[in-house]
Computed example of a mutant assay.
Amino acid sequence: MMIEIGLGLIVGVVLGLTGAGGGVLTVPLLIFVVGLELPQAAPIGLMAVGLAAWTGAIIGLRDGIVRYKAAALMACCGVLLAPIGVWMAGRVAHDVLAVVFALVMLWVALRAFRRPPTDVSTTKAVPCELNPLTGRFRWTSRCAATVAASGTLAGFLSGLLGVGGGFVLVPALSRFSDLPMRSIAATSLAVIGLVSLSGVLSAALTGNVQWAIALPFSAGAMIGMFAGRALSTRLDGQLLQRAFGLVAAVAASALLLRVAL
C-alpha cells in the first residue's frame, strides 16, 4: 500500500505543478513499479488523476481563475468520447496500445521542452479572446468549435490511454486563447476532473478497476496535488517543464524497449 501511495504522490505533485502531464506518468509507474499491464493500469491512472484534478480545480474555482463555461463545454464533449476510448482499449492489442501511449509521451516531452515557461504577450488573433472588462471569453462560433474539438480529443485519449487529457488541453488553450497560464492550468484541471469521472465509471462497470491498488494510489495523488500547488509558486517554471519532459522521454523509451523485447 505504501508503494501505491508514494507513486500517487509523485503523480499529484506533477499535476499540481504543471496542470497537465501527471497522467502520462501514471501508467508507466503502474507498469514498471507495480507490475500491471496497460489495460489494468489505465483506469487506475484515470481515477487517480481525476481525483487529484478535482482537488486542483476546486482551488482554482476558489481563486476565480477557472473559465467554467469553457471547461463545461470541453467536459461535455470529452465525457461522450471517454467511454468509447475505454471500449476500444479493451479491444486493441496490448503492445499496440503501449506503442501509441509511448508516442503520445514523446510528443508531450517535446511540447514540454518547446512550450514557453511563462505567459508571452502576443498580438496575433486567437479564436477565444478575453473581454478585458469582464475577464471572460468573447464567445463566437469559432471559439466554441475550437473548445469543443479540444475536449473531444482529450476525452477519447483519456478513456483509451488512462490519461487525464491535460497534455491536449493545456497546449490547446495556450494556442487558441489569450488566457494567462494559471487560468489555463486551472481550467484544464476542471475538465480533467469531469472527463475522468466518465472514464472511471465505464471501467468500473466492466469490472476493470483493481480497487486495492486504485484507492491508495488515488489518495496519494490527491495529497500530492496540494504539495504541487504549494510548490508551483516557488520553483522555476522553465526548469520544471524541462525536467518533466526529460522524465516523460525516458519513460516513453523504456515502454518502447519493453514492447520490443
Rank of each mutant, 00 (worst) to 15 (best):
E4M: 11
I5Y: 07
G12T: 03
V14M: 07
L15G: 03
L25C: 04
L25I: 14
T26Q: 06
T26H: 01
P28T: 13
I31C: 03
L36T: 04
E37V: 14
Q40Y: 00
P43V: 05
G50T: 07
A52S: 12
A53Q: 02
G56M: 04
A57K: 05
I58Y: 14
I58V: 15
G60W: 03
R62F: 11
V66I: 01
R67G: 01
K69I: 09
L73Q: 05
A75T: 01
G78I: 00
P83Y: 04
I84M: 10
A93R: 09
A93S: 12
D95G: 02
L106Q: 08
W107I: 14
R111G: 15
F113M: 04
D119Q: 10
V120W: 01
V126I: 02
P127W: 02
C128S: 11
L133D: 15
F137T: 07
R138N: 15
T140S: 06
T140A: 00
S141C: 08
C143F: 05
A145H: 03
A148F: 10
L153M: 13
A154Y: 03
A154M: 07
A154H: 06
F156P: 03
L160D: 07
L160K: 10
V163N: 08
V168Y: 01
L169S: 00
V170A: 04
L173S: 05
R175I: 15
S177A: 02
D178W: 09
L179M: 15
A185S: 14
A186R: 08
V195D: 11
L201I: 13
L201E: 05
L205T: 13
N208K: 15
M222D: 03
I223E: 04
G224N: 01
M225I: 12
F226R: 13
R229P: 12
R229W: 11
A230Y: 10
A230R: 13
R234C: 10
L235F: 05
L235Q: 03
L235V: 12
G237L: 12
G237E: 15
Q238G: 14
Q238C: 08
L239Q: 11
F244Y: 13
L246A: 15
A249C: 09
V250M: 04
A252E: 07
